[in-house]
């Protein structure tokens, strides 16, 4: 076996792939959150619509979109593969397992949180990506993305689903952000405390902003 295929097929190589794609998705989330936060300018979605228009037509952004989907798919498939492999490494389970004594519940539940996120993403892509990219609704000027947001978030069940999605994201990030750096072999007492607190605040801020969007639109806090 060549060195490279040996590397990516090993247990360490697999978690490194999770780490690299994870950090890539973290960067995407920051951009996504920033652009969407433009609705809080409260100008009837004018600035947000302009940004959305730019994101939908800029060639660089559209190219990155392909890599984003690739990264997401690799992260999800590799995560699934690892989760099943790891579950099978202990066929006879413990009668009593006190995991909370030595680790956080969400660090042990990344597979579950990831599954919830995947389900949320199906809904989310259908609501916005499908409508803005694969239908004429927005390009034809018939509707704006902000208008679409108002329409989607009018339904309280959808808002609740989005909140559940965001909560899953919070915990997924709380573990995932710092875990990615550990997988990439970056653990040093000089900078690891910084990475950990950056990861913590990143997860909290991103989640609060994302959760505020459907709530603000639903309750008409922004017009």
């Amino acid at each position: 076996m060549g060195a490279f295929s040996f590397l990516i097929n090993s247990s360490i190589g697999k978690k490194i792939i999770m780490g690299i794609t994870g950090i890539f998705l973290v960067v995407f989330l920051a951009v996504h959150c920033f652009v969407n936060s433009l609705i809080f300018v409260n100008d009837g979605g004018e600035l947000f619509n302009k940004a959305a228009e730019f994101m939908a037509h800029n060639i660089l952004i559209r190219t990155m979109e392909i890599f984003l989907f690739l990264g997401l798919i690799i992260h999800a498939l590799q995560g699934m593969n690892l989760t099943f492999k790891n579950m099978n490494a202990r066929k006879v389970k413990y009668y009593k397992f006190n995991g909370n004594a030595n680790s956080k519940w969400y660090s042990r539940s990344m597979g579950l949180l990831g599954t919830l996120l995947a389900l949320f993403l199906i809904l989310h892509l259908k609501h916005f990506w499908y409508v803005s990219r694969l239908t004429e609704e927005i390009t034809s000027g018939e509707d704006t993305l902000f208008g679409e947001m108002k329409e989607v978030f009018a339904n309280p069940i959808v808002v609740a689903a989005y909140i559940i999605g965001v909560i899953s994201l919070t915990y997924h990030l709380l573990h995932g952000f710092q875990s990615a750096f550990q997988s990439l072999g970056l653990n040093h007492r000089k900078y690891t405390p910084f990475i950990k607190s950056l990861g913590f605040w990143y997860s909290i801020i991103i989640s609060v902003l994302f959760a505020a969007m459907p709530l603000a639109v639903h309750f008409g806090w922004i017009k």
């Binding site: 978690k15 690892l82 099978n88 202990r90 990344m110 875990s179 072999g185 653990n187």
Partner: peptide
Amino acid sequence: GFGACTNTGACSAECPKEISLVNIAAMN
């Protein structure tokens, strides 16, 4: 047939010799 690491930190927390997680990063 051991599983892969998901960085929960349970190993180091339960290690009688308190071996640090830094070792796993260094091994990677």
